[in-house]
């Protein structure tokens, strides 16, 4: 069983929901990347989504765009990010790590080279925002051969046909984008999400994580009641942006702790 599957199985047994925080790797600077990952795990993250910086993050709102720019200023590349995962794995063998990013850094490295490096680093899942399933067959196959989960997005506009197509390739969990827009755009409507999830569950047996627009513990709790996992990105990145270098680890721990307690209440 993969680390992601094992994590979700254990949570289910204990009747708990997964908390999946997202941070952009190397933001605010590379020296804090691995300490931040450990802080997330310690504060109650079940899976860590690690954003791979890209010059043109088309699906992201201003908050995560700025995080990408800060990381890129420090020269953080896909190779650097894989290095962070290797370093994290030296002392944490249990928390799954999912790389989330855009296609071109992977295109530049080459599919096979990337899949091998991700395996060697201890990456558990990969979500490439601009690889929809119809363009990802070969890539997903290479990941599958290495037991790395290819994670795909679904959205409010996904049709039934589309859900079935995603079902063919998706592994690990489904990332349901809760609103029409970019990351961090607005607050999500829990009732809207609740209406869509049964359509997805009818075709896909994987756990469903909901993200985009979850900004506080209360919303996280409400989403936790209908989904299997809650993804929080922009809110954390905003906290990183507004914290001083000295306070950032504490502030992130407090924020993730609060959300964790709300989810478990």
């Amino acid at each position: 069983m993969s680390r992601i599957a094992a994590t979700f199985a254990a949570l289910k047994q204990n009747n708990r929901k997964a908390l999946i925080p997202f941070i952009t790797a190397g933001d605010p600077d590379p020296a804090l990347a691995v300490p931040l990952m450990h802080a997330l795990a310690k504060a109650g993250a079940d899976v860590i989504e690690l954003g791979v910086p890209f010059s043109d993050p088309m699906a992201d709102g201003p908050t995560i765009q700025r995080a990408n720019e800060r990381a890129l200023k420090h020269g953080v590349s896909l190779k650097t990010v894989l290095g962070f995962v290797t370093e994290f794995r030296a002392t944490n063998g249990s928390t799954p790590v999912v790389l989330m990013g855009y296609a071109n850094p992977i295109e530049a490295m080459g599919y096979e080279a990337f899949a091998n490096a991700a395996l060697a680093a201890g990456v558990d899942g990969v979500l490439v925002v601009d690889y929809p399933p119809q363009e990802a067959a070969r890539f997903a196959e290479l990941l599958e051969q290495r037991k790395i989960d290819a994670i795909f997005l679904l959205s409010p506009t996904s049709t039934e046909l589309r859900i079935k197509e995603v079902a063919r390739y998706a592994r690990g969990y489904i990332y349901y984008v809760s609103l029409r827009g970019v990351t961090g755009a607005a607050n999500l409507d829990v009732a809207d999400v609740a209406k869509k999830l049964p359509n997805i569950r009818a075709h896909i047996k994987l756990p469903i994580g909901v993200g985009f627009g979850i900004r506080d513990a209360q919303t996280a709790r409400a989403v936790g009641q209908i989904a299997d996992a809650v993804v929080i990105g922009s809110r954390l990145v905003q906290e990183i942006e507004s914290s001083s270098r000295e306070d950032v680890l504490d502030n992130i721990s407090t924020l993730v702790n609060d959300i964790r307690s709300a989810l478990d209440r």
Binding site: A59, D130, L153, S155, T157, S158, T159, V166, V177, G181
Partner: peptide, 9 residues
């Protein structure tokens, strides 16, 4: 078609 799922429809 290399876009996020949100644009596919």
């Amino acid at each position: 078609v290399f876009v996020a799922e949100t644009l596919i429809e």
